[in-house]
Nucleic acid binder design. Structure first.
Lengths: 161, 161
DNA sequence: CTATCTGCTTAGGTACCCTAACGATTAGGG
DNA sequence: CCCTAATCGTTAGGGTACCTAAGCAGATAG
């Protein structure tokens, strides 16, 4: 059908991901959250409404605890998050969204939905669902294919629900 | 079919892309190219066998000319590339792979094919082809959906053919 | 109660990419 | 032709988003 050759998989993934992140970030900016950087959105993508430990946040966002801690520090200082002792473990702290943070969280989740809906409209819902399902299966199959294991875990991802 | 909830699109794209890049980079390392960094692979993904201008390289790899120039500088010093005046334009220089660079180029193209074949085996060739086609269509549809246009162009991608 | 493990933090990088500004060449119009 | 404007490449100077290494404080297990 397509006489035009398609880009290699790396380009396709990279450009789509960048487009997604820019879109999401742009919405945050337009919503008035000018003090948020792109990396901060990952925190909102990983956190629970009731609070989440730093280690857990880092794992969900695929990054190291110190890296996540820096993002949390900034969001705390900007009034989006608060740290409070975890009652079930004296070492741990629960990182919870403040009222301001919950507003961002709600808007971010809605924004992701909107973007995904836009994709579904662009190529058709079935094809978009198939895209997501195939990517998920690729990731699930990956450990067997070849493991990198060069680092504990490397990578940065985006807003999850 | 899948009772497990799928990850949001950003995570799916991000993790898959990272996995792809790590895989490609690991192969380069194992092939003995220890002086190559991950970013260098983009150059080989953008260059033509007969030589390509810096501006063109930068555009194909979705980056600014100074950024690409730095990568080219390093690859030139490592003996993978050479710069020679472009006969058709006194300002421009053609960046060409040396014999050593052509070996890397060939291996890199083969590696990408292998990786893509691995994906096709993991989820089935039809689903993999559909994945690529859908991503391509999403990118083609994007300019209308919403343009970012915040920068000239931002982003980093991977090996193309 | 000591040994180890886990959660978090501090300190100090590293990889990768950007903008701004400039000299050199080419292209286009009067 | 000449003069302006655009283009190719480069230099200089960031800046973001991550990382590793090391350590303390609280928890867990023999």
């Amino acid at each position: 059908m397509n006489t035009r050759r398609r880009l290699p998989i790396g380009q396709l993934l990279g450009r789509t991901l960048r487009s997604f992140r820019e879109d999401l970030y742009r919405r945050a900016q337009e919503a008035g959250y000018r003090d948020l950087r792109e990396a901060h959105l990952q925190v909102f993508g990983a956190i629970d409404w009731t609070g989440t430990r730093l280690t857990e946040l880092a794992a969900r966002a695929n990054m190291t605890p110190p890296s996540m801690a820096e993002l949390v520090d900034e969001l705390q200082q900007a009034g989006y998050l608060e740290r409070r002792p975890d009652p079930s473990d004296g070492r741990a702290k629960l990182i919870r969204p403040t009222r301001k943070g919950r507003r961002v969280l709600a808007q971010a989740l809605r924004a992701v939905e909107e973007i995904e809906r836009g994709y579904a409209e662009a190529v058709g819902p079935e094809r978009f669902d198939a895209l997501a399902a195939t990517l998920q299966d690729l990731l699930d199959a990956r450990p067997r294919g070849f493991k990198a294991e060069r680092r504990r875990s490397t990578g940065s991802d985006d807003l999850q629900a």
